[in-house]
Write a protein that binds this DNA or RNA. Structure first.
Length: 266
DNA sequence: ATGACAAGACTTTCTTGA
């Protein structure tokens, strides 16, 4: 069994103690991190390595930035979503893990927020989603297990928000954003959480402001999208909401999927 | 009511985020 998590930690330096505590408690095998807010040279690799993780990062100064932690060796770590060589924002890294029967590909992605509407930020989001769809379509040709894990900044459906009406003028809930997310599903990628849990009220983000956590005023925007070969091995998926109540929390919590894969002995 | 929090940076005020 292999567990793969996605978690927007909102700053790796500010969150290091919280992150290490969760890793010690739940011992995920692979963790896709977003919003590390650190350049690669300043990423605190050592405390993660001390817990047995290999670390690959693609960071930038001040904001954005993604990383993958893995108990198994990470091969061919490749930053940047193809399709726009002029895009300097650090939002994507792919790596490969050897498992029984071949390669398991894992992507940590931080999809653009897109707010406010009416600025260049929203078309940047939609363009990034088009590039992600093209990447996902291309990868289908490999016929390999692939997990596209990350902060998608998309509320897929009304049941994914406590108060959907609050989001109708927000980039996260625009028809174009939701349609681009559905395009991944139309290609054949499966939303891991929805494969396991059909209930409303499952959230991965609660704003720091206005007592959103205390009111359970949340949204589900952190997703693991699975290629058919990954979906075939899915055994469970859940949101780790208890982390949101800890001291110094991120505004996001981890989402963890379990798979019937065996890592290869190294 | 674009308020409220939080993190990071050429910081004591700004940008960015959702």
């Amino acid at each position: 069994m292999i567990t793969i998590a996605t978690w927007n930690i909102n700053g790796v330096k500010a969150r290091i103690e919280t992150a290490l505590e969760w890793l010690k408690q739940d011992t995920p095998d692979i963790v896709c991190l977003q919003e590390i807010k650190s350049v690669d040279e300043a990423f605190p690799r050592e405390p993660f390595e001390a817990l047995g993780y290999n670390v690959v990062t693609h960071g930038q100064k001040g904001f954005n930035g993604v990383a993958i932690l893995s108990r198994f060796p990470l091969e061919d770590a490749t930053p940047r979503l193809p399709g726009d060589d002029g895009d300097e924002q650090a939002r994507f890294i792919e790596a490969v893990i050897s498992v029984d029967g071949g390669s398991l590909r894992v992507v940590s992605l931080y999809l653009p927020n897109g707010n406010p509407l009416g600025t260049e930020k929203f078309p940047y989001k939609l363009g990034w989603m088009n590039r992600l769809e093209a990447f996902a379509a291309d990868r289908l040709g490999l016929e390999e297990p692939l997990v596209l894990a990350g902060d998608y900044n998309v509320i897929p459906e009304p049941r994914d928000a406590k108060n959907p009406q609050d989001w109708v003028n927000d980039a996260l809930f625009q028809p174009e954003s939701r349609g681009a997310f559905r395009a991944l599903q139309s290609l054949g990628y499966m939303d891991a959480l929805r494969a396991c849990n059909d209930a409303a009220g499952v959230y991965s983000f609660w704003d720091y402001q206005a007592g959103a956590w205390q009111k359970n005023n949340g949204i589900r925007i952190d997703h693991l999208m699975l290629s058919p070969q990954a979906a075939d091995r899915l055994t469970a998926c859940e949101v780790v909401s208890r982390v949101r109540a800890w001291d110094k929390p991120s505004d996001h919590v981890p989402v963890v999927a379990s798979f019937d894969f065996q890592p290869l002995p190294n």
